[in-house]
């Protein structure tokens, strides 16, 4: 079983974002802070014919978004492994235990972007993720929207959805591999607010 990931990014080509550019109260690049209470790092993996799902809190997120030059955007996120939760108690315990995430010795998972590119209607965020002290490259797909209740062109509050997958065995998190799938699918919904 296993773990999740990080967050964020951007994409200037996203429809709503481009709306914003017109108004441009936005000198790029802009720093954003995470709204943790309304952000979710979700994960899913296979458990026999069933699924294990869960969530992991974000302990820190540093975001710099540049809507005019997407490649200048940067994301750094840290997750709190010790407070991760899963769809049933054994899964959470196993996930945080020494055979998988080993939260006692490795209480955090971190992700730092190395490049952000426009792709289709969203963006592709490449970066390096560190789990159990092992750092590997990772690519996630990102989409961004203006948050509900904010007018077109207002980029002060955004919602970003990141999706991707990793193999836990790449990080030495091989516990219960006879029962639980290797691939961990991530679905991250991050709500962010522009820093003043």
């Amino acid at each position: 079983m296993r773990i999740p990931l990080l967050v964020l990014v951007l994409n200037a080509s996203v429809a709503l974002a481009s709306l914003a550019l017109a108004n441009c109260a936005l000198a790029s690049p802009a720093n954003y802070t995470l709204q943790p209470a309304s952000s979710v790092v979700g994960f899913e993996t296979d458990f026999g014919s069933d699924k294990i799902t869960g969530q992991m809190p974000i302990s820190r997120a540093d975001l710099t978004l540049d809507f005019q030059n997407v490649s200048a955007s940067r994301v750094a996120v840290t997750l709190d492994v010790a407070h991760a939760d899963a769809s049933f108690p054994f899964a959470a315990q196993a996930m945080k235990g020494p055979k998988v995430l080993d939260s006692r010795d490795f209480p955090q998972i971190s992700f730092e972007s190395t490049s952000v590119k426009s792709k289709g209607e969203g963006a592709e965020v490449s970066g390096r993720v560190t789990i159990r002290g092992v750092t590997k490259p990772m690519v996630m797909q990102a989409m961004i929207w203006r948050q509900k209740g904010h007018e077109a062109g207002d980029l002060s509050h955004l919602t970003i959805r990141l999706t991707g997958a990793l193999n836990r065995s790449d990080f030495g998190a091989v516990g219960w591999s006879d029962m639980v799938g290797d691939q961990v699918r991530l679905d991250i919904l991050a709500r962010i607010a522009r820093s003043e």
Binding site: F47, G48, S49, D50, F88, F90, M179
Partner: peptide
């Protein structure tokens, strides 16, 4: 058996 939610 293959462990699953229904057999836990």
């Amino acid at each position: 058996i293959q462990p699953g939610l229904s057999t836990l």
